[in-house]
């Protein structure tokens, strides 16, 4: 929240300390979820390399959990890959939304694309200043990539040491992260709110009836309520 209201003129590093502080909470939570992913995959019967390699090259928490879930439930590799891909289609929309945030240069784009996740996009878009947008994306993204993969490795090696992470309320932490990052925009921009709230309601209504990943995509139908170009006038 605070990060949104503060729009500093300068780009000096100490100014980004609050970004690191806010992002570090998400890193801790991501690390613990990573441990549980590694543990679930290995105790479910996959070899240690599978969750570790998957986390490095797929790098998408919800898709990884779903794909491994389908695999361990005997759904087969094709269904597992299809489920994960369906969940990740939203990253295409996110990539389009943050394309100008990544920075110039081919390497920044190629590496930055891999770091596009729900959390990094939310962190970036919560900033109003372009310099802080870029900093928020890279700070949250690099940190999250590091802790996620270290966490998965630790979980894969240690097995079921953490127990059920629901005990720590982590399942409530991730939606709350998105609430904290998205609420200022919803509050300030009536046109976005007009699309987002009916979209979310539609997603909730569809959830029991359609495959995972579809409800969130269906929410984009809310954009039909965005209205014509008042902002250009």
């Amino acid at each position: 929240m605070r990060t949104v209201q503060r729009t500093h003129g300068g780009a000096a590093d100490p100014r980004h300390r609050d970004l690191v502080r806010d992002a570090s909470l998400v890193w801790v939570a991501g690390g613990v979820v990573g441990v549980s992913f590694g543990a679930i995959a290995v105790t479910g019967g996959l070899p240690v390399w599978a969750p570790v390699v998957m986390s490095l090259v797929v790098y998408a928490g919800s898709a990884q959990f779903s794909a491994v879930g389908v695999l361990l439930a005997g759904g087969g590799p094709l269904a597992a890959a299809a489920t994960g891909l369906l969940l990740n289609t939203r990253t295409a929309a996110f990539g389009l939304a943050v394309a100008d945030v990544l920075g110039p240069g081919r390497l920044a784009r190629l590496a930055g694309a891999h770091l596009v996740t729900d959390e990094t996009v939310a962190f970036a878009l919560a900033q109003t200043d372009p310099v802080r947008r870029r900093a928020a994306f890279w700070v949250s993204g690099i940190g999250l990539f590091a802790v996620w993969n270290v966490g998965v490795l630790a979980g894969a090696l240690a097995g079921d040491a953490l127990g059920d992470t629901a005990r720590y309320g982590l399942d409530a932490a991730f939606p709350a992260v998105l609430v904290a990052l998205v609420l200022p925009t919803l509050r300030a921009e009536a046109r976005v709110r007009r699309c987002a709230l009916p979209g979310a309601a539609l997603a909730l209504a569809l959830t029991p009836a359609v495959p995972a990943g579809v409800p969130v995509l269906a929410a984009l139908a809310g954009l039909a309520l965005y209205g014509r170009g008042e902002a250009r006038a």
Binding site: R90, A93, F94, A97, V98, D118, V121, A122, L125, P175, L178, V179, L181, V182, T185, L186, R191, V192, C195, A196, L197, G199, A200, A201, L202, A203, L204, T207, P215, V216, L217, A219, L220, G222, L223, Y226
Partner: peptide
Amino acid sequence: AGAVVLLTALLAT
């Protein structure tokens, strides 16, 4: 706007 719509739907679900 679409990114915020997706994030809102994600947090709700």
